[in-house]
């Protein structure tokens, strides 16, 4: 779906080398997470693929064609939700969808249905200026998928949403994936990435430091141990055991049998741990 090879990009004005020798690919039907701290080049990469920046060096092949060979038809096939809501504040929720929808050749989804999906149907005739930030974000999100695009770009889709609404958005993203849509997700929220992405790329200072499935990365960078907290003889204890041949570990089995177990954890790394380990820096 997207193939990037040896991509380099420098901003003309500031002469800042934003992207250096970047290579990755995104397969059809995949949710691909692009993770990194602010200013790492996430948005720049996304903008290059979307086509908001020109004059790059290297290859960006999208939907089977080099990016700079695409004309405006490209936008019939992609959907973009930026990280802050881009809406006509004087128009109602429904009018916003209808207005932008009219620019696409594809038959757009029924606005009422979309609004209902994100819990905005009761407010469909309310002007967007009276919406809360969360409501705007949800409207902005459905606007980006209403023309049934094959490839979608979401920039921090759940920022500013309460857990309930964030959950709805995540559900929709997974539904889209089921329909074999490809999703390019930019975020610095590791939990979201862990829950949604088939693969993630960590990016720091314009370079990709690692790519892989969250699960694999977490196991690869974790410790192969299990941590047990238990109560024995009136005292609290904590102990680590090697995962290797755990079933034959007599001490471990003994604790399981006789002690009062408080917690048992395997110690795979979180994405955040991996990130800090690989880049030596914190997120955000």
């Amino acid at each position: 779906m997207i193939q990037v090879e040896n991509l380099n990009f420098t901003y003309k004005k500031t002469r800042k080398k934003a992207i250096q020798e970047m290579s990755f690919d995104v397969k059809e039907g995949e949710v691909f997470g692009f993770l990194g701290p602010s200013g790492a080049g996430k948005t720049t990469t996304q903008r290059l693929i979307i086509g908001l920046l020109r004059n790059y060096h290297g290859k960006i092949e999208v939907l089977g064609k080099e990016r700079n060979q695409w004309g405006k038809d490209y936008y019939e096939h992609i959907g973009v939700a930026f990280d802050f809501p881009n809406l006509y504040t004087k128009l109602t929720a429904k009018e916003n969808l209808q207005l932008i929808g009219a620019y696409y050749k594809n038959e757009c989804e029924d606005p009422d249905k979309l609004l209902e999906r994100v819990g905005l149907l009761p407010e469909k005739d309310v002007r967007v200026e009276n919406f809360s930030k969360g409501m705007k974000m949800r409207l902005n999100f459905v606007r980006s998928i209403m023309h049934n695009p094959r490839l979608m770009f979401f920039d921090e889709p759940t920022s500013g949403l309460d857990p309930m609404n964030a959950h709805i958005i995540k559900e929709i993203i997974l539904e889209q994936k089921k329909a074999n849509k490809t999703i390019f997700l930019t975020t610095h929220n590791m939990t979201v990435a862990e829950q949604l992405c088939d693969r993630v790329a960590f990016i720091v200072e314009g370079k990709i430091v690692v790519i892989g499935s969250p699960k694999d990365l977490m196991i690869e960078h974790g410790k192969r141990i299990v941590n047990v907290e238990f109560r024995m003889n009136g005292n609290n204890h904590a102990k680590n055991f090697d995962l290797q041949n755990l079933g034959e570990n007599l001490e471990f089995m003994n604790i399981l049998k006789s002690a009062e177990i408080k917690t048992i954890h395997s110690c795979e790394a979180t994405l955040e741990d991996i990130f800090i380990k690989l880049t030596g820096r914190n997120l955000v």
Binding site: Y75, P85, L87, T89, Y103
Partner: peptide, 14 residues
């Protein structure tokens, strides 16, 4: 300012 221009840019509208 409202960011609508960005949406139009990434829509098929020329």
């Amino acid at each position: 300012g409202q960011g609508v221009l960005m949406v139009l840019v990434v829509s098929p509208l020329r």
